[in-house]
């Protein structure tokens, strides 16, 4: 068994693995490994949204809070983007394709002095981000994955997508964004996980 493994490893490295390994390692942040499936992580029961009553809100440090119904959200201009995603539990998945509304579109015309946001969700989950990390085409409210409506176990009807940060920031079952003057640590950020969560700097835990 041991010899077989060694032999297979040798063959794979020698004849066909090298180029692909190099290409993927440059796309793989430190400490991560590549998966082809899409693991489901969940900190609680999966909420089942009633789309007739579903809304997405922008509130907090804003003169006139904004709110969209599900139909209104779908009517907004959308993007289809293909991104690599990186979970803090160490799996990464390349070339995931999402459709959704850019947060920049939702924030159009919003005047705020806020520098931070708390993203809030059905089920009570929250996560914190600097406002600039969800501006300028860096984040989306995604409602399709791989051409299909986003499944509830992956955060449907809609989740935040912030692919440049660890995936716990891409909050499932998202319902809105609260603009804030100060940073308020979210569900995981208040209990050991890093406030910012850059996978390329391996900011997993407090003190990283």
């Amino acid at each position: 068994m041991r010899d077989t493994h060694r032999l297979m490893g040798f063959i794979s490295r020698g004849f066909k693995g090298r180029r692909r390994d190099t290409a993927s390692s440059s796309r793989l942040p430190p400490g991560q490994y590549l998966v082809n499936d899409f693991p489901v992580l969940s900190a609680g029961p999966t909420p089942r949204a009633n789309l007739d009553q579903w809304t997405f809100s922008i509130e907090g440090e804003i003169d006139e809070p904004k709110r969209w119904t599900w139909k209104e959200l779908l009517a907004l201009p959308s993007d289809t983007v293909t991104k690599d995603i990186h979970c803090v539990t160490k799996w990464s998945k390349f070339d995931t394709t999402w459709k959704g509304v850019s947060v920049a579109t939702l924030l159009e015309g919003v005047e705020t002095g806020a520098e931070y946001v708390t993203v809030f969700c059905d089920g009570g989950y929250t996560t914190n981000l600097p406002l600039e990390d969800i501006m300028d085409g860096k984040a989306w409210v995604a409602y399709e994955f791989d051409g299909q409506p986003l499944h509830p176990e992956h955060g449907g009807p809609a989740r935040l997508l912030v692919p440049h940060l660890y995936f716990w920031k891409s909050a499932k079952w998202v319902r809105g964004i609260r603009l804030e003057n100060e940073q308020h640590p979210g569900f995981w950020e208040s209990n050991g996980y890093h406030l910012y969560g850059d996978p390329w700097r391996e900011q997993r835990y407090w003190g990283d």
């Binding site: 693991p39 489901v40 992580l41 969940s42 900190a43 609680g44 029961p45 803090v88 539990t89 009570g124 716990w168 569900f187 995981w188 209990n191 050991g192 996980y193 997993r204 835990y205 003190g207 990283d208």
Partner: peptide, 25 residues
Amino acid sequence: YIHAPGTVVRCPDCEQVLMRIVRGR
């Protein structure tokens, strides 16, 4: 719930979070 960045313990009556346990470093 253990399939998460940490372990989340919830009340079986109201589903609110009782404990969060994160292990790392």
